[in-house]
Design a protein around this nucleic acid. Structure first.
Lengths: 141, 141
DNA sequence: GTCTAAGTGAAAATCAGTTTCAATAAGACA
DNA sequence: TGTCTTATTGAAACTGATTTTCACTTAGAC
């Protein structure tokens, strides 16, 4: 997500573009997938040392509302965030041994959404997370 | 999940079968899918009035460890639980308008798990939640 | 029946996330 | 460029879900 596009979206939503928001956006893209607020705060502080954690939470809320970021839940009790990629989405592979998170661009959910629509429920989004053991942890145990 | 099987699993895991645990198990099966700790506590209290919320949390943790229950995350900041059905699983359809939760037994994730295995990651479980609008909310808006 | 470790309840603690409020600053307009 | 309105910010206090502590109880092995 480049800055100009993001700034445009924020302004279109009646929001202002601040140094803190630029820092959070850059932190999000640098951190890649499924970073938590604490991590994003730490990274954003490199570019804007005075930014508070509260501002990070509020910024992530604004970004989510404007479609610039999305939340991810991996079951560890905290909300994670990542920049949205336009027209694409991915899913997470969480290793139950080392905790590392990989991703996959493949998704087999669309046909299911069709079946569900035939029952009257219109699916607009889905979350899919896969859990198991990564190659490294599988061989070393 | 019937009581005898559940009791057997608990004992096999070195755990004891208590009146409180029986109450939580029954509450889980009566409440059906994706109930939160507060709801489970309220229902369990009908059978065991002195049970505390803390015990409910601890029991759900034990049940999850023994495979009697599983957690569900719908993004509202609380963990939900449901009794596991042996050899089967289902997914949740969450209406973004009325909040009602429906389920589907269909699942198109298995082929994806195969693809991922070929890359070295062994999937042992997955979570899939679908969000959108139920028939009722679709027509009334 | 005895005994011991697992389980319990109540209160206190923790932890992620939210709210409040006074101060700051984006950006619309003169 | 300066002015003004209002969104945004930071710090501190708060909230709500969940966990920990600790003294007391009890399941179930012997």
């Amino acid at each position: 997500m480049d800055l100009d596009r993001a700034a445009g979206r924020l302004r279109a939503g009646g929001r202002r573009v601040t140094a803190q928001r630029r820092a959070v956006l850059r932190a999000l893209t640098e951190l890649g997938c499924a970073a938590d607020a604490e991590e994003i705060h730490g990274r954003a502080r490199r570019m804007h040392p005075r930014i508070g954690l509260v501002t990070v939470y509020r910024t992530l809320e604004a970004f989510t509302a404007e479609g610039l970021a999305q939340s991810v839940f991996l079951g560890d009790g905290r909300t994670r965030y990542e920049a949205t990629e336009q027209g694409r989405h991915h899913h997470h592979l969480v290793c139950l041994h080392c905790g590392r998170i990989a991703t996959t661009d493949e998704c087999t959910v669309q046909p299911l959404e069709g079946t569900i629509l035939r029952r009257g429920f219109e699916v607009t989004a889905h979350r899919l997370e896969l859990f198991g053991y990564c190659a490294r942890c599988r061989t070393r145990r």
